[in-house]
Computed example of a mutant assay.
Amino acid sequence: MKEFTYTIQDPQGMHARPAGKIAAIAQSYPGRVTLWKGEEGVDVKKLLPLIGTNLKQGDTVIIRVEGENEEQAASSMEAAFKENI
């Protein structure tokens, strides 16, 4: 398992456009990608639950990657978060 912590930078928080890009990248990996905010986790591969996290600028989340190619997947996911949100 690989994980990283990220603080939302986008003033608009999590909304459809960045969530769609992040979900698409997560879907390209066979393993599991989960976003944790506090005690609640959502599957990053599923767009609606990801949007439903209602993340705001300044919120800190943990992204966990498990399964095949987790090192590469974690690196790609971290880059996707930095580029999109």
Rank of each mutant, 00 (worst) to 15 (best):
A19L: 13
I51E: 06
P11Y: 05
T53N: 04
V42H: 04
Y6D: 12
R64Q: 14
L47T: 08
L35T: 06
E78W: 02
P49T: 05
Q9A: 15
Q72Y: 10
D59C: 04
T5E: 15
P49G: 12
I62T: 15
P30Q: 01
A19S: 14
V61L: 10
E39T: 07
T7L: 08
K82V: 06
G20T: 14
A74H: 04
V65D: 01
T60Y: 01
T34L: 13
A73R: 05
V61D: 07
F81H: 03
P18S: 10
A80L: 12
Q12K: 14
E68A: 15
E70V: 00
Q9Y: 06
I8G: 06
M77S: 08
K46A: 07
I25Q: 09
E78V: 09
E83Y: 02
E78T: 05
A19M: 05
R17C: 10
R64V: 11
S75G: 03
P49M: 02
V65T: 01
G31D: 00
R64A: 02
T53A: 08
M14V: 10
E40M: 08
P30S: 03
A23K: 05
I62C: 12
Q57I: 01
Q72S: 13
S75I: 05
Q57Y: 00
V33K: 11
L55D: 08
G13W: 08
E3P: 03
Q9V: 13
R32C: 02
G41W: 11
K82I: 11
V65A: 01
I22E: 06
E3G: 12
N84Q: 13
E68R: 00
E39Y: 02
G41S: 11
P49W: 09
Y29W: 04
I25S: 03
P18R: 04
L50G: 07
T5S: 13
P49H: 06
A16L: 13
A79N: 07
L48W: 13
V61K: 03
A79H: 06
Y29D: 00
N69D: 14
P18T: 00
D10L: 13
I85L: 15
V33T: 14
V44F: 09
F4H: 04
Q72T: 15
A74F: 04
V33D: 06
E66A: 02
N84W: 09
E40L: 03
K21W: 08
K46E: 09
E71Y: 00
Y29E: 00
R64I: 02
N69W: 05
D43F: 04
V44Y: 07
M77F: 11
E83M: 12
A19G: 10
R32A: 01
I85M: 04
N54C: 11
G41I: 05
L48Y: 09
S76K: 11
